[in-house]
Amino acid sequence: MGICLAVTGLIIVGVVVGVVVAGKKTSSSTRSTGSSGSTGASPNSPVQQTDPNDPSKFTKDPDLHQAFYGMAYTPVGSQLPDCGNSLAAVIQDVQIMSQLTKRIRLYGADCNQSALVLEAIKQTKVDMTVFLGNYPIATDNGAAYQRQRDVIQDAIKTYGTDHIGGVTVGNEFMLNYLNANSATDPNSAVGDQGAAILISNIQDTRDMLTSLGVTLQVGNSDAGSYFNNKVLAKVDYGLANVHPWFANVSADDSASWTANFFQEVDIAQAANISNNPKMYIAETGWPTKSSDAGNANNGPSLASEANLQTFLDNFVCQANANGTGYFFFEFCDEDWKDKQFGGVEGWWGLFSQDRKLKNVKIPNCVAP
Rank of each mutant, 00 (worst) to 15 (best):
Gly2Ala: 14
Val7Asn: 12
Gly9Tyr: 12
Gly9Arg: 10
Leu10Gln: 09
Ile11Asp: 09
Gly14Ala: 10
Val20Ile: 13
Ser42Lys: 08
Ser45Met: 02
Val47Cys: 11
Gln49Asn: 12
Thr50Arg: 02
Asp54Arg: 12
Pro55Glu: 03
Lys60Ala: 13
Lys60Gln: 13
Asp61Arg: 08
Leu64Pro: 01
Leu64Lys: 01
Gln66Arg: 14
Asp82Ser: 08
Cys83Gly: 02
Val90Ala: 00
Ile96Asp: 04
Ile104Pro: 11
Val117Cys: 09
Val117Leu: 09
Leu118Cys: 04
Asp127Asn: 14
Gly133Pro: 04
Asn134Ile: 15
Asn134Ser: 14
Thr139Val: 15
Asn141Gly: 13
Lys157Leu: 11
Glu172Asn: 06
Asn187Tyr: 10
Asp192Gln: 07
Ala196Asn: 04
Leu198Arg: 00
Ile202Asn: 02
Asp207Ala: 15
Ser211Asn: 09
Ser211His: 06
Gln217Phe: 11
Gly219Lys: 03
Asp222Met: 00
Asn229Glu: 04
Lys234Val: 07
Leu239Gln: 15
Asn241Pro: 00
Trp245Met: 10
Ser254His: 02
Ser256Pro: 02
Val265Arg: 00
Asp266Met: 14
Ile267Met: 12
Asn272Phe: 00
Asn275His: 03
Trp286Thr: 10
Lys289Ser: 15
Ala296Trp: 07
Asn297Phe: 01
Ser301Lys: 00
Asn322Asp: 13
Thr324Ala: 03
Lys337Val: 06
Phe341Met: 13
Ser352Asp: 15
Leu357Lys: 01
Lys361Asn: 05
Lys361Leu: 03
Pro363Ala: 06
Val366Glu: 08
Ala367Phe: 08
